[in-house]
């Protein structure tokens, strides 16, 4: 479970003495098995939130817990239970694909990871690149390797920041399936994405951020009910009957941000 309580994050403004608030007093909870879609405009505070949950950034206010462990008070325990897939994966260019996975296995103290490594490399079509240095991988393959590193451990929480970037259609399908599979196993998942169709496909809940503020937090049905119900567009068909068609998630999203 991921519990975000009153979380705020501010950054010092360059050339000014003040600070800019990236996220303000955000409260949300992602239960085991839940997949939360984190959406919002650029600069809404999505990545700051994810990075703070992952332990890259410290919270300026409030608290974040992963599986009951506070990321500020028990960072090692919290990180042990968290998997992080960044939007632009940075890898150790000197290490090969296999060395990356073995390093991650040793950091997360995974005993006998070889079978799992082979399985993941086959799933994400990286087996032929097993001994290739990360510097020689394409953008999509780097993304796949970052996903494999995250999938290697058995996390309780998964954080994915624009995970589909650079993936081919097969990779996208594979990733969607495995996210759903992991959620079914009881992992709490947060996905930040601008691909609303993907969010609609796999997410059970949605959190819309706008300028660091929570705009909406609830299930997709609640979102549709709140922002899509009254604004349904009417279209006439060939027989002259008016038929009310439901708004797409994209339309609902824009309506929520208004």
């Amino acid at each position: 479970m991921i519990a975000i309580n009153n979380f705020s994050k501010c950054y010092p403004c360059p050339n000014e003495s003040g600070s800019a608030i990236a996220v303000s007093e955000l409260t949300a909870q992602v239960l085991p098995g839940q997949i939360l879609g984190l959406v919002g405009r650029n600069g809404a505070g999505k990545t700051s939130t994810l990075k703070s949950i992952a332990g890259i950034l410290s919270a300026s206010g409030g608290a974040i817990e992963v599986d009951g462990f506070d990321i500020a008070l028990n960072p090692v325990e919290a990180k042990q239970r968290t998997a992080w897939v960044p939007d632009d994966p940075e890898l150790f260019n000197d290490l090969t694909v296999e060395q990356h996975l073995k390093f991650v296995a040793s950091v997360y103290q995974i005993t006998s990871p070889d079978n799992r490594i082979t399985e993941l490399l086959a799933d994400f079509e990286l087996e032929p690149k097993r001994h290739t240095p990360a510097s020689d991988l394409s953008r999509g393959m780097r993304q796949k390797l970052a996903i494999c590193c995250a999938w290697l451990q058995a996390p309780k929480a998964m954080l994915l920041d624009e995970p589909m970037t650079g993936l081919d259609p097969y990779g996208i399908r594979m990733l969607k399936q495995s996210i759903t599979r992991e959620a079914e196993k009881g992992v709490a998942v947060i996905i930040s994405s601008h691909l609303l169709m993907m969010v609609e496909d796999i997410c059970s809940d949605i959190l819309i951020l706008d300028q660091g503020q929570k705009k909406f937090y609830g299930t997709l049905d609640q979102l549709k009910l709140r922002f899509g119900g009254s604004n349904s567009s009417s279209t006439g068909n060939a027989h002259g009957n008016d038929q009310s068609s439901p708004m797409s998630l994209e339309e609902i999203y824009f309506s929520a941000l208004k």
Binding site: I56, V76, T82, C149
Partner: peptide
């Protein structure tokens, strides 16, 4: 920290 150390090491369960 290089970007990769930031992404991999800082999110890993390693004491500061």
């Amino acid at each position: 920290w290089t970007p990769c150390e930031l992404q991999i090491l800082k999110t890993a369960p390693i004491d500061r």
